[in-house]
Amino acid sequence: MKHEEMKEKLGAFQDGELSPQERLEISAHLAICVECREIQKSWQKISEVLFQSRGFVSHQETEKFVARTMEKIIPPSSKGAGAFAGLFWNFLTPALELGFAALFFFTVLGASDRFAAPDTLLLLGSNKDVAELILPSVSGQGANWFNSLLEGR
């Protein structure tokens, strides 16, 4: 290779883009050619000064960007059916839990005297019919508890 050819390949030499054979030739040339050595040194310095400190992005900036862009890719409203289902289960689950708790409460407490007459309730007298109507299955301790609740004990 001639000097001009070598000079043209200095960039590729520095970038590690030459074949082993070409690398050997350029290395040997650099050892004897002052001009090429100067060109190579000056580019190394330019590269350090101009490009070394460029392009730092913090982790937080990246995360903000990702969140912002993901909102455009999967907008919260377009989660659609998923969002509706979430809302449904959020309300339904506590309601079901409460229902089961109430059922368990009355079933267990009333087990000993399941069919107690409504006249054991405080709601006797004029409200007997109502008591029979609304509390047909409340009995025993359950009824006592209900009485004490009404009495404010």
Binding site: R54, V57, T62, F65, V66, T69, M70
Partner: peptide
Amino acid sequence: LYAELMRRHYPKIFC
């Protein structure tokens, strides 16, 4: 999973 791709390459693309 596209978030992961952005996490990996955003700094370079921004630069």
